[in-house]
Amino acid sequence: QKEELKEKAKEAVKRGNKDKARELLKRAGISEEEAKKIIKKIE
């Protein structure tokens, strides 16, 4: 489940939808700070 949400978040970032990505990562139980780092890494 968590990995699936991370994959979806990756796709969202690639489409330029960072808010959606952050939302998905939060749903995966990832903190706001972690989510920001992950999104930065994907960009």
Rank of each mutant, 00 (worst) to 15 (best):
K14D: 03
A12C: 06
G29P: 00
I30T: 02
E23M: 05
R22H: 12
E3W: 11
E23C: 06
K40W: 15
L25E: 01
K10P: 01
E32R: 05
A28L: 09
K41H: 10
I30F: 15
K18V: 14
G16I: 02
K41Y: 12
K18Y: 15
L25F: 07
K40Q: 14
L5D: 04
K40H: 14
E7A: 11
K41T: 12
K37I: 13
I42Q: 05
E23H: 05
E33G: 06
I30W: 12
K36Y: 12
K36R: 11
L25T: 01
D19K: 12
I30P: 00
G16T: 02
E33L: 06
G16R: 03
E43R: 04
K10R: 13
N17L: 11
R27C: 08
R27F: 09
Q1M: 14
I38K: 01
E43F: 07
L24H: 04
A9R: 00
R22V: 14
A28W: 02
I42H: 06
A9E: 01
E34R: 05
I39E: 00
I39R: 00
V13H: 04
E7M: 10
K6L: 15
E32G: 06
G29A: 01
I30A: 05
E3K: 08
E11L: 10
S31A: 06
K40C: 11
Q1W: 15
K2T: 12
E43S: 06
R15S: 13
K41R: 11
S31R: 05
K36N: 15
V13C: 06
K8H: 07
V13L: 12
K18L: 15
R22P: 00
E7P: 00
K37Y: 10
S31M: 04
A28K: 01
Q1N: 13
L5S: 03
A21G: 02
A9T: 03
I38C: 06
K14P: 01
E32C: 07
A12S: 04
D19F: 07
Q1T: 14
G29T: 00
N17A: 09
R22T: 11
E43L: 11
E11H: 06
E23Q: 06
A28N: 02
E3A: 09
E43T: 05
E3S: 08
E43A: 07
R15Q: 14
A12Q: 10
R27Q: 15
E32W: 08
K41D: 14
I38D: 00
V13D: 00
E4H: 12
L5Q: 03
K41F: 12
G29S: 02
E33I: 07
E23A: 06
K40E: 15
L24Q: 02
G16N: 05
K8N: 05
E34H: 05
E7H: 07
K37G: 11
E43G: 05
A28Q: 02
K41G: 11
K6W: 15
I38N: 00
K10A: 11
R15K: 11
K2E: 11
K41W: 13
A12M: 13
R15I: 09
L24T: 01
E23W: 05
A9D: 01
L25A: 04
K2M: 15
A9L: 10
E34G: 04
K26S: 07
K36Q: 14
E7L: 11
D19V: 08
L24A: 03
V13G: 02
I42A: 09
K2C: 15
A9V: 15
K36E: 15
E23N: 04
A21Y: 03
E32H: 06
Q1Y: 14
I42E: 04
E32N: 07
I42S: 05
R22W: 15
A9N: 02
A12W: 12
I42C: 05
Q1A: 13
K8R: 12
K26D: 08
K10Y: 13
A28T: 03
E3H: 10
E4N: 10
G29C: 05
K18Q: 08
D19R: 12
R22K: 12
L24M: 06
R27N: 11
I38H: 02
I39T: 01
E11W: 06
R15N: 14
L24N: 01
I30K: 04
G29F: 00
E11R: 06
K36W: 14
A9M: 03
K20H: 13
L24Y: 10
G16F: 04
K20W: 14
K14N: 09
K14Y: 09
E23R: 06
N17G: 03
R27S: 12
E33Y: 07
Q1S: 14
E3F: 07
K6D: 04
R27M: 14
R22D: 04
E4I: 13
L25Q: 00
K2A: 13
K37S: 12
G16V: 02
A21F: 05
K18R: 10
K18P: 11
E32S: 07
K40P: 01
R27A: 14
E11C: 09
L24R: 01
N17F: 13
I30E: 03
V13P: 01
E32A: 09
G29Q: 02
K40A: 15
G16Q: 02
K36G: 10
L5N: 03
A28S: 04
E34T: 05
I30C: 11
L25R: 00
N17Q: 13
A28E: 03
G16M: 04
E3T: 08
L24I: 08
I39Q: 01
E4W: 15
L5R: 01
E11G: 03
G29Y: 00
A21E: 02
E33N: 06
I38L: 09
K14R: 14
E4A: 13
S31E: 07
I38T: 02
L24S: 00
N17S: 05
D19M: 10
E7F: 07
A12I: 04
G16W: 01
K6A: 09
K37H: 10
K6P: 02
K10H: 07
K14C: 09
N17Y: 12
D19N: 09
E43I: 10
E43K: 04
R22E: 12
A12L: 14
E43C: 10
E23V: 03
K8D: 05
N17T: 04
E34P: 00
E11Q: 09
A21K: 02
A28V: 04
K20D: 09
L25Y: 05
E11I: 08
A9H: 02
